[in-house]
Design a protein around this nucleic acid. Structure first.
Lengths: 255, 255
DNA sequence: CTCCCTTTGTGCGTGGGTTCACAAGCGTCT
DNA sequence: AGACGCTTGTGAACCCACGCACAAAGGGAG
């Protein structure tokens, strides 16, 4: 009965030409691998082993090899991966072979910070336009990016061929902005507002909730505090030296 | 460098007094539930069903109930959850019963935006101090928050009892800043720099990589483009979910 | 040319997470 | 008071994902 599904957490998405399905979790890590690979490339490395790259990415080497195998990447056995080749492959897979223009909605502190964030430009993302509801900001330019009234969103986006929108407005306005973006032909939305956005099928939404991140950290703080207090038979040395690696810390296991 | 481990992906952490293990994935969602619950509470709701709250949070109702059951929450069968009671329970679990002071390192665009972000204050997080390496910023105050030289990090953090640090500096400086934070007694780090931080065991790190988020969106764009072109392989899992009318639909449909 | 060392690629076992489906419990209407 | 309907809580199956460990394969030395 339900024609559409909800956000599939562990959904398997189709790969590209090769036709291999790529787990969603892997996609996120590909970006991490790309980052690490760029660092290594700048360091002059021409080949890299899965062990090295995995260490630089903070994952296990087996996981990395499996992730890379999804996109049929060819490393050389006994040697490792050719850095420029793998780099090109990752960029192609992530769609970075083409320049992307994004629209940032909300010219507040966060929106302006995003315009100035050089991590975007370094990956081929450029902010083509800023939008805001406040008329006093209109016509202003932030680092060369003009601020438009929000009513012009559709027109400007279509004119610039923008397909990625960033929502950096207060929670109350987020859904409205999202609707406008979708109406303007945007199919990918990066949302910083602390609300769950409703979108038609086919639109990709990624949520970045800063307060939630802090709350997760807070949870771990509280858990540790509770452990020290009433939980019997537990041993955690408070703080202590940073240099020493304590083998006995049960905060997190696995890996 | 770095005999230390990195952030663990899917680890099961110990719960609180009750001793029930709480999945890491659940913890993240608890923050989302709290958000949705606050909205409902402001709307005057006194009870809420799992179906309603799930819809407002963008998840399935069964998942929500299971998540809530981890913290031994008491709903009333046939009625739903008591909003103020559940709200208090969530805040307690997430450690929000106590005010948290965080340190933001990096007084650039992002750092300043974080100071002004009201989503923090609304959840009991206050920025107690800013730090930066640039001497011209020292002594300045951003929205009443003083900017200190980075050398004073340990002293100020200890004086204010800061246990959460936010890294908002360029990638090159991130590891150094992280080390300083850890040395200052910080046990939780929120990292915006595009690097994998090495930390001693017991230190929680959460990574927010804005460029990576955009790359994931870019991947989906590229995938869709490849699909439209000549790719013979489309297949979307039909999978009729239990969710009847979920507002959030971000499936990627072909044809 | 052959042997050996190194590293990739992957089949499989295990474990965690998500979903389904149902029993238990609470309120309410008659 | 008794029965009915609604909602929670959870037991169990499914499914993905992670990690181990090994076979396949390339390069270099002798």
């Amino acid at each position: 009965m339900s024609p559409h599904r909800v956000s599939p957490p562990g959904a398997v998405v189709l790969g590209e030409r090769g036709g291999r399905p790529v787990p969603e979790a892997t996609i996120v890590r590909l970006a991490v691998y790309l980052r690490a690979l760029c660092s290594l490339a700048e360091g002059g490395a021409t080949v890299v082993s899965s062990e090295e790259l995995a260490a630089a990415s903070g994952v296990g080497s087996a996981k990395l090899r499996k992730d890379l195998s999804f996109l049929g990447s060819h490393g050389t056995r006994g040697v490792g991966y050719d850095v420029p080749r793998l780099l090109a492959r990752l960029e192609l897979t992530l769609g970075l072979d083409r320049a992307h223009v994004v629209a940032v909605v909300g010219a507040g502190n966060l929106g302006r910070a995003l315009v100035g964030y050089d991590g975007f430009a370094r990956r081929g993302f450029t902010v083509g336009a800023l939008f805001d509801a406040d008329p006093t900001t209109h016509g202003e330019a932030v680092l060369g990016v003009p601020v438009h009234p929000i009513e012009d969103l559709a027109a400007v986006c279509r004119h610039l061929g923008i397909t990625i929108g960033v929502v950096a407005v207060p929670a109350e306005a987020a859904q409205d902005v999202c609707d406008r973006l979708v109406a303007a032909g945007t199919t990918c939305v990066l949302n910083f507002a602390p609300v769950v956005l409703a979108t038609p099928p086919g639109v990709q939404v990624r949520q970045v909730d800063l307060a939630a991140e802090l709350q997760v950290l807070s949870f771990h703080l509280a858990r540790r505090a509770a452990e020290v207090l009433g939980d019997g038979a537990h041993e955690i040395d408070p703080a202590a030296g940073a240099g020493a690696q304590d083998p006995r810390t049960k905060t997190v296991v696995s890996t």
